[in-house]
């Protein structure tokens, strides 16, 4: 006998609810588990002290700093390039082979396994350009796989601006440049910004691409030395730098400190909390900017 449309509709609704709850349950338990294991480890001492190799009581201070600093470096490189290319794709490119080719390259780049990007970085940045294991090499490697995301976010953000808005600008005698900077970018800024911060979260958690580029060790850092040219300065972009995600991987696979497991758990919790903060922050900032730029209440 055929099911009535109503029954089918009810079953479908139930099934979709079930899947939604399943996904939420998996995510919530995953985050809950990591936080449950790690939150107890987090203390001011843990967040600020250097790690210990053989003793208990090590921290993740330099790694946390490295992660944040690497993020800033990556964004300094990625954001202008990504926004520039995104504007090109949305506003200047004409449909045709060349544009299709760029789009293909962007798609392929974004689906690269990050370990491959890491090896590419090792060959090109670390060895060929002789940057050694350094923050800069790491930032460039991260740029390789962050750039496609930035390009796509910007392109979508700008294409998402209603055509009427763009025409309104042009009809007032605005140049293309002014139309882009004064009409399209402000309207799409919240989208672009949200996307950028989400991309930043991805960078923050990345490990594989950094193993062979930013390296797996940190020199002893002197947090009172802010001269970026000094080899012990935390700001030196040419020093090797182990990030938080890499550190978690390392102590889990070869840590010999007696409390390695707890350190890894604590570091994981810090990582997840930071990424969560990025996400919430991006939404808040996006909404704030939208209100600010559009004078809507």
């Amino acid at each position: 006998m055929r099911m009535s449309n109503k029954t089918a509709d009810r079953i479908a609704t139930a099934v979709f609810y079930f899947f939604a709850f399943l996904i939420i349950a998996v995510l919530a338990s995953l985050i809950g588990f990591i936080l449950y294991r790690g939150l107890g480890q987090i203390s001011w001492h843990f967040l600020t002290s250097p790690p210990e190799t053989f003793k208990t009581g090590g921290g993740i201070g330099p790694q946390l700093f490295n992660s944040l600093f690497l993020l800033v470096l990556t964004m300094i490189i990625t954001v202008p390039l990504g926004i520039g290319a995104g504007i090109y794709m949305a506003e200047y490119s004409r449909p045709g082979r060349f544009t299709d080719f760029i789009r293909l390259v962007v798609e392929v780049l974004s689906s690269f396994p990050s370990i491959v990007v890491g090896l590419f970085g090792l060959l090109v940045f670390v060895q060929y350009f002789d940057l050694k294991f350094s923050l800069l090499a790491g930032a460039l490697a991260l740029t390789v796989f962050n750039l496609p995301l930035m390009v796509r976010i910007t392109e979508q953000g700008i294409r998402g601006v209603p055509r009427e808005q763009k025409e309104a600008g042009l009809a007032l005698g605005l140049t293309r440049w002014h139309t882009i900077t004064k009409v399209l970018l402000p309207v799409s800024l919240p989208t672009i910004l949200t996307g950028t911060i989400l991309a930043a979260g991805r960078v923050f958690g990345e490990a594989a691409a950094l193993l062979f580029t930013a390296g797996m060790s940190s020199p002893r850092l002197d947090f009172t030395d802010w001269n970026p040219l000094s080899p012990v300065s935390p700001l030196n972009p040419l020093r090797p730098a182990e990030t938080l995600a890499v550190h978690i991987w390392k102590i889990n696979s070869e840590g010999v400190a007696p409390d390695a497991a707890q350190i890894a758990a604590g570091a994981s919790a810090v990582l997840i909390l930071t990424v969560l903060l990025f996400n919430l922050g991006s939404r808040w900032l996006g909404r704030f900017l939208y209100r600010k730029l559009t004078a809507s209440r």
Binding site: P162, E164, Q165, E167, A168, G169, L170, A171, L172, G173, L174, T175, V183, V187, L293, T294, A295, S296
Partner: peptide
């Protein structure tokens, strides 16, 4: 740009900018 300044346009859908 000068042309469009001299020949203004109003569209089918009201399209004010999302500003004051």
């Amino acid at each position: 740009e000068v042309l469009r300044k001299r020949v203004g346009m109003v569209f089918q859908q009201p399209n004010p900018f999302p500003k004051s």
